[in-house]
Design a protein around this nucleic acid. Structure first.
Length: 217
DNA sequence: TGCCAGGCCCTCTTTAGGGCCTT
């Protein structure tokens, strides 16, 4: 597999849903995707979606998304097919990817589309890179790092924007603090699976490999 | 209108338990 450069677009996704897991019948109510390239947001996708599923009151209280809002939204299958086209082959990132990747797969399956994108998780990365942070909840780690809040929390686009800002900050810090020249998705995926005590050695090795001059053909 | 997941991580650990994170 050819290594991805840091300028390769990464799709940062966030779902609002009716519950915690598709395995229990929860469905998505809203999806937002932010394309991050070279540390900058280059495109955005956002839509409410109508799955026909009932939204419990406490979810409406949390997200502000009502049953009336999704009743007027486009069908979920239509939204997900458009979302899949928007993402293309870009690798994906989410804050607690275990959650969003399940809904990504489940809603795409409902739309008859296969989910093939690899996911990386900003929660796992945040725990590796900022172990001093008191919390790794999205809003709190954003505050801890001094990043701007983006709109109403628990709406998909605002959360995706904040997760993208967090990812961009991680890429920046990997360059500045850990001297990793190419903090691409491959490194992020490796880093999130690396035990915390081994992170400094991993990053040192990665930086050394990146600094090694390419062999001329 | 309901009714409680799952993967990861830390520690008072590994023959386990409990907290975190997402809606």
């Amino acid at each position: 597999m050819e290594p991805m450069s840091s300028s390769t677009a990464i799709a940062v996704i966030d779902f609002e849903t009716t519950g915690m897991t598709p395995a229990q019948g929860a469905r998505a109510t809203e999806v937002a995707i932010v394309l991050l390239q070279g540390g900058r947001v280059v495109d955005r996708f956002q839509s409410l979606m109508n799955t026909g599923a009932w939204i419990p009151p406490f979810i409406t209280q949390l997200t502000g998304i009502t049953n009336a809002m999704v009743a007027e939204a486009p069908p979920a299958a239509e939204v997900m097919r458009e979302a899949a086209r928007f993402v293309g082959s870009a690798p994906m990132v989410a804050h607690n990817a275990a959650f969003d990747s399940k809904f990504w797969g489940a809603e795409l399956a409902q739309a008859g589309v296969a989910a093939q994108q690899p996911f990386a998780c900003t929660v796992l990365l945040s725990r590796r890179l900022y172990p001093e942070a008191p919390s790794h909840k999205l809003g709190l780690i954003v505050d801890h790092l001094g990043l701007p809040r983006a709109g109403r929390a628990h709406r998909a686009l605002a959360d995706a924007e904040m997760a993208a800002a967090l990812l961009a900050r991680m890429q920046h810090d990997l360059r500045q603090r850990w001297h990793v020249d190419n903090p691409d998705h491959a490194l992020l995926s490796t880093l999130q699976r690396c035990a915390r005590p081994k992170v400094p050695a991993l990053l040192a090795g990665w930086a050394a490999a990146a600094a090694r001059p390419a062999i001329a053909a």
